[in-house]
Design a protein around this nucleic acid. Structure first.
Lengths: 260, 260
DNA sequence: AGTCTCAACTCGTAAGGACGAGTGACGTCA
DNA sequence: TGACGTCACTCGTCCTTACGAGTTGAGACT
């Protein structure tokens, strides 16, 4: 038995011992951990204790477990995809809206539907709850890396009527921006970023492994007079992606306060 | 026994049943779940199965468990703190650098130290590995909401020598920007956002509850000639915070490609 | 040689029992 | 009345045992 330290529960001591072994290089990234039976032998504890310890390491994102094969040290590696959150100068042509840095593909048809604003989606659009919206959901993939993302566009009826969007709510964002600009709007955007654990359907659609959150960005497009026109929504596995922004010094604008 | 559905393992069926009960409003946010004993009675399963089900809900972030008290439906609520990621016009005066939207306090002294660039910190600074750095770590708190954040400043020796930063590596970011501007730099910034599960020490320092990730932003300050001058690093619990950006249309700049 | 079956390995699920530890309320005692 | 201790309730930890299910390779059969 490799020696075990003080703090707390047995399974935590075992987890700490395995964690140290990983960090010290005894178990290299990608390499298999000892099997449960071997860990039982090594630390002289029962199987539930071993499983509890491994579960803790799993929740930390240190270890991957595969049924029938074994447990493996997770290869960290920097997020391979950097999504640049700027507004591309539409060019367009590619399979999707290269609405940020990369060229996405759409394996499925965009799903178009109608909804209403909620307590979440209403405020950023400057609307109450229950106002009519066009919605369009897309599953995007980056063929180069296999990264997947869920994209959603929400178009208030008011915005749709001023353009031809009512006839084609599945217009791609870059094209929407173009339409709005042609309609006389000078556009700017606000974007918020949140992180949370994925819902079961998101785990599914985005193929998210254990203990990895989703990055959830919400972008509001503002037109002349600063009124909100469009709401976009991008969800992406945080394992494979990071977001990138470019910031320039700004003259004191109309003071905009952090919301409580 | 409230009826139970098909899919998969028993504990998953129980978890699904409880999840539905929560979503249907039978257990309101903040309200206590039935105790383990009651769940055993209700679903006619053993205690490990109940505990496994509750653990699943915990990992989803749906439920909070308190030793000796019970399990409670987690109150979601939108992240109460919005951190605006722009460059404040330094005004300064407040307790900390209001380097984004809010006024932070520093309960502890900033920790100043020396390090070297790593495989992570080197590239964004345009340096190799092992180059000397000044470091400064801060714990920030927002007294209004109790939100906490970890802030780190990394200053390459080259940058420190051109200013007076070698004497005071704990200068606050807004003041650093001012110094650099006075030194003749026209500044701009890049910022990347990642999300991941917290390390044990981050869970501690930021008081992060179960199943909530950290938002990890890295900001590089660029000066004239676009060379990187400073690296900043902000880590914050994703439960209490979201990041906000303002984006304006840009003329096609020198093409900047997404890193692989 | 090629295919197939099976056995041995992995982790996953489920039950049962026992005890420890944190919390809060109630009742007793000063 | 007030302070304190006990007790009943919660979840946390740990053990034993048993069987199911996915994966892989070795051996037998065709």
């Amino acid at each position: 038995m490799t020696e075990i330290k003080r703090p707390g529960a047995l399974y935590q001591q075992v987890a700490a011992a395995i964690r140290d072994a990983i960090l010290s290089g005894e178990f290299a990234p990608g390499a298999p951990l000892p099997s449960e039976a071997q860990l039982i032998e090594r630390y002289k504890v029962s199987r539930p204790t071993v499983r509890n310890a491994v579960a803790a390491l799993r929740a930390e994102g240190l270890v991957n477990v595969q049924h029938g094969k074994g447990s493996f040290v997770r290869t960290s590696g920097l997020p391979p995809v950097t999504v640049e959150r700027r507004i591309s100068r539409s060019g367009s042509a590619g399979p999707f809206v290269t609405h940020d840095g990369i060229t996405w593909e759409q394996p499925d048809e965009p799903k178009i539907y109608r909804t209403e604003t909620t307590a979440i989606t209403g405020p950023p659009l400057g609307l109450g709850e229950g106002e009519a919206l066009f919605g369009c959901d897309r599953l995007l993939t980056d063929p180069a890396t296999g990264t997947r993302a869920l994209h959603r566009t929400l178009i208030p009826f008011a915005t749709a009527e001023d353009t031809e969007l009512a006839q084609a709510p599945d217009t791609e964002p870059a094209a929407i921006y173009e339409l709005l600009t042609k309609a006389g709007h000078k556009l700017w955007w606000t974007e918020t970023v949140q992180a949370r654990m994925p819902l079961p359907d998101e785990r599914d659609a985005l193929q998210i492994p254990d203990a990895t959150p989703v990055l959830h960005t919400t972008r509001t497009t503002h037109g002349t007079n600063d009124q909100p026109l469009i709401l976009e929504d991008l969800r992406i596995s945080a394992e494979r992606a990071q977001l990138a922004y470019r910031i320039t010094a700004e003259k004191p604008p109309a003071a905009r306060r952090a919301r409580a």
